[in-house]
C-alpha cells in the first residue's frame, strides 16, 4: 500500500516563525517537516509521509477568518493529501480554534479526513468536535510525543477509509454523533441487566446521554404593544386547502409563508392542518385554534396591537431534528427582523 500523504497544520510558534510577536503572520507553506513535524514523521514511520507544513499566525486566522482559510485550503489542496493533521493545540485557546477551523474546512470543502489534538477543556473542542476527530492531550507541549502517538494511528485509519470505532476504542473525544449498529444483546436483555445493576446500587452507564440544549432567554417585554407589528408563526401545519406548497406531514424539510392580507378568520373550508403528529380534528373544525388570526384581528381593530404582519409563517413540527428547527427559526427570524416585526406569537401543537 502506498504511503499516506500528510499535510501538517501548525501555528506560527510551532512552525518556528516566532512567538506571540509574530501571531499576525499570514499563512505560509514549508515543504516537508518543521518543528513537531519531525516527531509526526517518526510516528508515521513508513506508513506515511509529511509532504508539507502549512502554518498561520493565531491572531491572523482569527481576524481574517475567511481569507486566511481560503489561503490555507489552497495550499493544502496543492499537495493532494490523504490526511491533514493539525496541532496538537493542547490548552492554547486561539490555536485550538484555528486547528478546529482548519480541520472542519478541509474536511467539508476538500473532503480530506482530518485529525487534531486538544486538551479536553480547550474551547476548540466544544465547537469542532463533531466536524473533525480530536484526540485528548495533556495541558502543555510536554505531552507532544504522546499526543502524536495517539493521533497518528487514528489518522492513518481515517486516511485509508477504515471504519472508525467508538471513542473509547479509538482514543478520540466523543463527537456527539449517534450512529446505529448491531450490538451483542437485544435491548430487552440489556435493559433488565441495567435495572438489576441499579437495584444492587451499582453505577450504570446510560446508552443515551441527556443533552444540554441552549436555553433561549426571554427578551424584554414590548413597551407599547399598541404600536407593535405582530407576526404569527406556527409549527402546527395549518396551510391553505389543497396544500399548494406541499408541506410534508412529518419530517418537514421547509417552512412556508402565506399572506393574511384581507383575511379576518381562518375557516375549515379554506385552511387545514397537514401536521401528522397530533389529532387534527379540532384544528380542522376551526384553524384559528392553532393560528389565532380571528382574535388578533379583533386586537388590531381595538388598537390593542399596532398591526398584524401580513405574512404568516408555517412549518410542521412532527419529527423535526433540533438542528433543522434551529435553521428554520433563524431563517424566519431574519425575514421578520428585516421586515420590522416587533413581536411574534409562536403557536405549537
Amino acid at each position: 500500500m502506498s504511503k499516506v500523504r500528510v499535510v501538517y497544520y501548525l501555528n506560527q510558534f510551532f512552525a518556528g516563525v516566532g512567538g506571540e510577536d509574530r501571531a499576525d503572520e499570514a499563512p505560509g507553506v514549508r515543504e516537508g517537516t518543521v518543528g513537531p513535524g519531525l516527531a509526526l514523521q517518526r510516528a508515521l514511520g513508513d506508513q506515511g509521509e509529511v509532504v508539507a507544513t502549512v502554518y498561520c499566525g493565531d491572531n491572523y486566522i482569527s481576524e481574517h477568518a475567511e481569507s486566511a482559510l481560503e489561503q490555507v485550503l489552497e495550499s493544502v489542496s496543492k499537495y493532494q493529501p490523504d490526511l491533514v493533521v493539525a496541532g496538537p493545540a493542547f490548552n492554547a485557546g486561539r490555536y485550538g480554534l484555528a486547528c478546529g477551523q482548519v480541520c472542519a474546512a478541509v474536511q467539508e470543502r476538500l473532503n480530506v479526513p482530518t485529525v487534531t489534538g486538544m486538551y479536553p477543556e480547550n474551547p476548540g473542542v466544544e465547537l469542532y468536535r463533531s466536524q473533525t476527530y480530536i484526540v485528548p492531550t495533556g495541558i502543555s507541549a510536554a505531552s507532544m510525543a504522546a499526543a502524536l502517538g495517539r493521533m497518528v494511528p487514528l489518522g492513518l485509519k481515517l486516511a485509508r477509509g477504515e471504519r472508525i470505532g467508538l471513542p473509547a476504542e479509538e482514543g478520540y473525544l466523543p463527537r456527539g454523533l449517534r450512529f446505529t449498529d448491531y450490538v451483542e444483546q437485544p435491548a430487552a436483555v440489556r435493559a433488565v441487566a441495567m435495572l438489576l445493576k441499579r437495584l444492587r446500587g451499582e453505577a450504570v452507564e446510560t446508552e443515551w446521554p441527556l443533552p444540554q440544549y441552549d436555553r433561549v432567554a426571554a427578551p424584554p417585554p414590548i413597551k407599547d404593544l399598541s404600536k407593535a407589528t405582530v407576526a404569527l408563526v406556527s409549527s402546527g401545519g395549518v396551510v391553505p386547502q389543497g396544500n399548494p406548497g406541499r408541506m410534508e406531514s412529518t419530517f418537514a424539510t421547509k417552512w412556508l409563508k402565506y399572506s393574511l392580507a384581507g383575511i379576518d378568520d381562518l375557516t375549515g373550508e379554506e385552511w387545514l392542518s397537514v401536521h401528522g403528529g397530533y389529532d387534527t380534528t379540532r384544528a380542522n373544525e376551526d384553524p384559528d385554534r392553532v393560528v389565532p388570526l380571528d382574535v388578533l384581528r379583533e386586537f388590531e381593530a381595538q388598537g390593542a396591537i399596532g398591526r398584524l404582519f401580513d405574512s404568516y409563517y408555517v412549518t410542521v413540527g412532527s419529527g423535526a431534528a433540533t438542528t433543522t428547527a434551529k435553521r428554520f427559526g433563524q431563517e424566519i427570524a431574519r425575514e421578520l427582523t428585516a421586515s420590522g416585526v416587533d413581536a411574534v406569537i409562536l403557536t405549537a401543537t
Partner: peptide, 22 residues
C-alpha cells in the same frame, strides 16, 4: 430513537432523572 440527525441529541423531552436509558 425516533428523531434526529447524527449530531442532534434527538430528545423530544427529557427529565434529569432519565439517567438509565437503553
Amino acid at each position: 430513537e425516533s428523531y434526529g440527525t447524527p449530531d442532534d441529541p434527538g430528545f423530544v423531552h427529557f427529565v434529569p432523572e432519565a439517567v438509565a436509558i437503553v
